[in-house]
Design a protein around this nucleic acid. Structure first.
Lengths: 158, 158
DNA sequence: TAAAAAAGTTAGGGGAGGCTAAAATATGGC
DNA sequence: GCCATATTTTAGCCTCCCCTAACTTTTTTA
C-alpha cells in the first residue's frame, strides 16, 4: 500500500510525539509539521481510512499496529540516514536532519541496506584510521574559514 | 528563484537530450519522463515564463543561458550522487540512477559538498585498502544469495 | 458555573501538476 | 500537390494537499 510523502510525514510525527509525550493530539502535529489544524484533520481521515490510525472526535490520536509498523519503517530510515550523514560525512545535525527528512521518503531498499552495511563496517567498534583521516581531511579543506568556503561556492557549479 | 522538483526534472532532461541528440522536441521529453505531451507543453510554458527556456510553436526547445546553468546544476548533482552510490556503496547503476533522480532535488549544499569531498578522499588515485575491504564485506554479507537477502528483508524493520 | 479561551472540525477554495480528447500544424509518401 | 500520419497545442478535468473562515466542542478561569 503506497503512501504519499506527506502522509508518511504525518505518520512519523505521530510516532515521535507518542514516544516523547505519551499521547498525541492534533495540536502536536500542527506544531511539529507547521501546517494548519485543518490539514492535520484531513490527513488523519485519510490515514484512518487506510487503517493506519485511530482517532475519536476531539480525542487522542493512536497508531494501529499496521500504522506503527509503517511509521517505524519511515523513522528507522530517518535515523539511519541521519547517522550516516553526521557520523560518516561529518555533517552538523541540523543540516543532516533536514536532508534525512527528504531522503527517508525516497531511498530504495538496496541503497538503505548499503548505508547500514557501511555504518556497520565503519562505525562498529573503534573508529578506523581512514575515517579519522577523512574527518581531518574535511577540517583541512574547510579551513579558511568562512571566506574560502564562500568563494568556493560562488566559483563552483552549484 | 525556486523551482519545483518536477520543473527541475524537465530542465534536466532537456539538457541531456540536447547533449545526446543535438536538438530537443516535445516528444523527446515525453519519452524520457513518461508524461503526456500536454504536461510537457504546460511545463515549457512555465519554464519560458521564468526565462529558462525558449520554444517557438511546433519548433525545437532551447535552454537559455540561465536555464543551462540551472540544468547543469541539477545534472552535476545527479552525476555526483550517482557516482557516490555506485563507486562507494557498490550499488548497481539502475538502482543508483533512480535514487539519484530523487536526491538531486533535495540534497543540501553542505551534504553535496561532503559527498564530493568523500569521493575525492576515497576514489582519487588508487582504490584504498579499506574501500576494497568494504566491497568484500558487501559480497560476504550478500552471499546466500537470493534466499538470504529475501529472508533478511522480511525479518527486518522495513 | 458561566464566560472566555483553546482545541478540533467542517466547508469551501486554490495552486501544482498530472491526465484525456480534440483541434491545429508539420511532415512524408504517393 | 495532396492526403495520411505524426507531432504539438489547447481546453477542460481530476487529485493531492495545502489554506482560511466559520462553527462546535472541550478546557480553563474568574
Amino acid at each position: 500500500m503506497a503512501l504519499s510523502q506527506s502522509l508518511e510525514d504525518y505518520l512519523e510525527q505521530i510516532l515521535i510525539t507518542k514516544m516523547e509525550k505519551g499521547v498525541v493530539r492534533v495540536k502536536d502535529i500542527v506544531e511539529r509539521l507547521g501546517v494548519s489544524s485543518a490539514s492535520v484533520v484531513g490527513a488523519l481521515q485519510h490515514l484512518e481510512k487506510d487503517g493506519l490510525v485511530r482517532h475519536e472526535r476531539y480525542g487522542y490520536i493512536e497508531l494501529t499496529e499496521k500504522g506503527k509498523k509503517r511509521a517505524r519503517c519511515v523513522y528507522s530510515k530517518h535515523s539511519a540516514i541521519m547517522r550516516f550523514f553526521t557520523d560518516v560525512l561529518g555533517i552538523p545535525p541540523e543540516v543532516a536532519e533536514s536532508d534525512a527528512c527528504s531522503f527517508e521518503h525516497f531511498i530504495s531498499p538496496l541503497c538503505f541496506q548499503r548505508m547500514l552495511l557501511f555504518m556497520r563496517f565503519a562505525l562498529e567498534g573503534k573508529k578506523p584510521a581512514w575515517l579519522e583521516e577523512f574527518h581531518r581531511f574535511i577540517e583541512k579543506s574547510g579551513k579558511g574559514n568562512g571566506k574560502k568556503t564562500e568563494r568556493k561556492l560562488k566559483g563552483g557549479r552549484c
